[in-house]
């Protein structure tokens, strides 16, 4: 039997098809499924970013309201469930979403790298030695893999800074977010870092919030033209809200001079009691 030409020259697959995992894990086996996971987790993270930003706007109502907001998060569902349970569940799902988003991004990137780089026998790393002219790919879409890590690093810093208080040391008052925010963002380098990171976040959302419609296949000629606008306004809104915190702190619109419950009055419990009382008096 002679070999068919397609057998002789059949281009070998660059990856083998693996045995299919049971549903729903099989969704995560293919790139299309993984992009879907990225989009779904992206939506979750977008929701978080939006609510986080809106919640933080309480800072403009003063330390007491900010304290109340923080308490209300812990009290979510507390009429029925143990206090903080819902908050922890939310945190857990955020961590899972973040982990999946990150893992799928890294593995998909690797898959693309294996399919396109070294494509020329000699040229090595670059796909086209003669250069590449981009027409449609926006700066945002091409920099997802840079804005992503910036956001991830920022997130760790941000948690360490505002939740765990590693860098504020004695200045850190658990349960008094107003104070913590002020103490952190009043330092110029920190404020600059926040500005940069949030710009990266908005940049990331600008492509991501459009791209997710494609990945999920949410598509209808009737509203397709709105998708870009949605992504741009969402990114703009987040940028505006989040940038206001470092900028307003630096502009002294967020400050502690006229604060009723000065941090110097005593230990954490005393401060928090003062804030609670202030709310009740109001």
């Amino acid at each position: 039997m002679t070999q068919t030409t397609s057998e002789r020259y059949r281009v070998k697959p660059i990856r083998d098809r693996r045995r299919e995992w049971p549903f729903p894990l099989n969704l995560y086996q293919t790139a299309v499924g993984r992009k879907w996971v990225m989009a779904v987790t992206g939506i979750g993270l977008l929701g978080f970013v939006l609510i986080h930003m809106i919640g933080n706007l309480h800072v403009y109502e003063g330390p007491a309201k900010m304290h109340e907001y923080a308490e209300s998060l812990k009290n979510l569902g507390s009429g029925i469930l143990p206090r903080s349970l819902i908050l922890w569940l939310l945190r857990l799902s955020l961590m899972v979403m973040f982990g999946l988003h990150l893992h799928s991004a890294i593995t998909l990137k690797e898959m693309s790298r294996k399919s396109s780089l070294n494509a020329s026998f000699q040229s090595g790393e670059k796909k086209y030695e003669g250069g590449r002219e981009y027409i449609a790919a926006s700066y945002a879409s091409r920099t997802m893999r840079w804005t992503g890590p910036i956001i991830a690093l920022f997130l760790i810093y941000h948690l360490a800074d505002m939740t765990w208080g590693w860098w504020l040391g004695n200045e850190f008052v658990p349960g008094d977010p107003y104070h913590n925010l002020y103490s952190s963002l009043s330092r110029i380098p920190v404020a600059i870092f926040y500005v940069i990171a949030n710009m990266a976040l908005a940049w990331h959302i600008f492509h991501g919030a459009w791209s997710m419609f494609q990945s999920l296949g949410i598509n209808n000629p009737k509203y397709n033209h709105l998708r870009r606008g949605f992504a741009a306004s969402f990114a703009g809104l987040i940028l505006l809200g989040n940038l206001s915190f470092p900028i307003m702190t630096q502009a002294n619109l967020i400050d502690e001079e006229e604060r009723l419950c000065q941090v110097s009055i005593g230990d954490t419990d005393e401060i928090l009691a003062c804030l609670t009382k202030q709310l009740e008096d109001h």
């Binding site: 281009v11 697959p13 660059i14 990856r15 083998d16 098809r17 293919t30 790139a31 299309v32 993984r34 992009k35 998909l108 990137k109 898959m111 693309s112 790298r113 294996k114 399919s115 396109s116 981009y134 027409i135 449609a136 790919a137 926006s138 879409s141 091409r142 997802m144 492509h207 459009w210 791209s211 419609f213 494609q214 990945s215 999920l216 296949g217 949410i218 598509n219 000629p221 397709n224």
Partner: peptide
């Protein structure tokens, strides 16, 4: 997927396509 990379919705393909196939089909 055995042969090619993963789509990141750049849209370069549509720009290069001589028949202007729409990105919506990917969705």
């Amino acid at each position: 997927e055995e042969f090619f990379g993963s789509c990141t919705n750049h849209g370069e393909c549509h720009e290069a396509c001589p028949k202007e196939i729409n990105l919506d089909f990917i969705a």
